[in-house]
Design a binder for these strands. Structure first.
Lengths: 339, 339
DNA sequence: TTGTAAGCGTTATCAG
DNA sequence: CTGATAACGCTTACAA
């Protein structure tokens, strides 16, 4: 069968302890080092992570919980994590919660049972009871994209208030006053913040908020169709609409296409999250761009720190800046050029 | 610390062997069963997979090697695998090879060192030396999307010859005779097959093959720009172009947009792989659709079988059928309506 | 620096 | 059906 350090020790004529020490980077006499290295090559020895893990109580694997593996936001975030976890030799165990809290809870149990060394979660809701359980067991957790209220937890998020604010501000400066918003579920922190950004921008520009311009939708694939319908069926309908996440942005594009409403002409439209194809539309789409790779990288790096016992600044809440892409999907309603 | 079966045994007043048997579904006296269940609840016992793995030599984890986690094809395939692996309690360890053979080789080593129970690979090339190593170690491997020649390995692929054939046939039946193709690297089996489908279709319709209409490109993000340039710079340029994978399709869309060439009007364009946004373009894009979820599901199911020691029909090569979406991105050059 | 040996939490064998 | 006990492959005191 597979050779063990015992075999290596025998062949190298040293004790198994010495081999173990060599493998773990402790000092070993140069001569023995050579012999061990030779024996390892000879036998093609690979050490058994389970045996090691059993002793050290580390699996060198981390769990990553995301709402959907086909979601572009999630995959970009994962991409950002990879380099860091690679560097430290962690395996990434991906779990897809399909946007359901019950799955999230189940997967958390699964990962804890698997004894991963740490977990990164992009939570589907504002519910954090199961996350408390993880923390109580001593396992580090980092939340991404969505903050959970009433929970002390490391979190990497984007500055959603400002992201939305800038988008709405841009719409306003192009002359729009009637601006609809596809807001997300208000039990999702991110959604709440984006709506807050919308409100602030209107306030700062002294535009009265028309509550019927605020419609709510799930943040799921295909969600939001009725929300757009509702907005367009208003007697006094908005001239511009701001969608606050990727899925609802996509739905908007589909909706307008189906309705024969041309973006930038019949309706002005601002979306959230960037994908190459959004810029291939006619006209290209104005969007809020989030630094998705960076979120992943920061989360991974923080988790590694925590797994190494460094709890400085806990709970750390890091907010990353977003930017906006401005295109003709927002019609310019005023004569003066805008910079 | 964490309770072990020893603690459970003590509390339940039975031997540790009995607890282990209970946990593994062997017969245990009803009375003891009750006591054990109670003790487990009481202590909140979770068994240690590393200890189990050390004995049984199983990690209950599988490795999945893909060229890129942000590739829509890959994520859809992974989505298809999840249900199956969930059912059998396997964790999925995702590794991104970034389309480089050297990374693929390294990741294979990583996964073998981690002692996963099986590996699914979407190979980046036709090189299978490292895959032979896996097989020699007794670890089951299933290849997806791309077959590797001169390697006996379970493989789930799409019928690429027919997929391409149908696309080209459709283009021909709409009156085109000058059809360009963005072919992939010919050391990728999938790319070879798709080119083969193109050739066959032209042959079957008695259209002479113009070798300058065949241009090659990498199958990577952003690749293929020069390939399109080359085709359009021909004195006698094609009236239709067929891109043979997702990335080059995307590049095509970008290229035409940049050049101000309108698809379906100035040039006819047929792509590969489906994504919602392709249907939101003006006009929507004609594409070959692959059953990505099904590939994942089939691969997962086959791997589970192999991991359970069932080697029937090895090496199994399964080919899944593709379909095509036909839109106005192909201009109809003949009067008679086509069905 | 090294060898020895006890343990990590299970499973599996064997005798009862 | 159960209990006792020897592995599984490694790390880590401890003593030398």
């Amino acid at each position: 069968m597979m050779p063990t350090i015992k075999d290596v020790a025998k062949l190298a004529n040293v004790s198994i302890g010495t081999v173990s020490r060599y493998l773990n980077g402790y000092n070993v006499k140069e001569e023995n080092k050579k012999k061990i290295e030779l024996a390892i090559k000879e036998l093609d020895f690979k050490f058994n992570p389970m045996a090691k893990g059993l002793r050290t109580n580390k699996t060198f694997s981390v769990g990553v919980l995301i709402p959907s593996i086909t979601d572009i936001f999630c995959t970009q975030v994962i991409e950002g994590m990879q380099e860091t976890f690679d560097k430290y030799n962690y395996s990434i165990i991906i779990c897809d919660t399909r946007n359901k809290l019950e799955n999230e809870i189940e997967k958390v149990k699964f990962l804890m049972a698997k004894r991963v060394d740490g977990i990164i979660i992009m939570p589907v809701s504002n519910n954090g009871e199961h996350i408390k359980l993880i923390q109580n067991s001593g396992m580090p957790v980092v939340l991404i994209d969505r903050l959970i209220e009433n929970l002390s937890c490391d979190t990497i998020v984007c500055d959603n208030v400002n992201g939305a604010y800038e988008a709405v501000e841009n719409i306003i400066r192009r002359g729009h006053r009637k601006i609809g918003i596809i807001a997300g579920p208000q039990n999702i922190y991110t959604a709440k913040e984006r709506l807050e950004g919308y409100r602030r921008a209107l306030n700062d520009y002294n535009i009265e908020i028309n509550e019927s311009f605020i419609v709510y939708s799930e943040y799921k694939k295909g969600a939001g169709y009725e929300a757009y319908e509702r907005l367009l069926n208003l007697k006094d309908r908005p001239s511009a609409i701001f969608a606050t996440n990727y899925e609802t942005t996509l739905t908007g594009i589909i909706f307008f296409k189906n309705m024969g409403i041309s973006i930038g002409e019949d309706i002005s439209f601002f979306g959230y999250d960037q994908t190459e194809l959004f810029q291939m539309l006619t006209p290209p789409l104005s969007v809020v761009v989030q630094p998705m790779n960076e979120i992943g990288k920061d989360a991974a790096e923080l988790l590694v720190k925590r797994m190494n016992g460094d709890m400085s600044f806990f709970p750390l809440i890091k907010r990353l800046k977003t930017s906006i892409v401005v295109t003709d999907s927002i019609k310019n309603l005023i004569d003066t050029k805008i910079e």
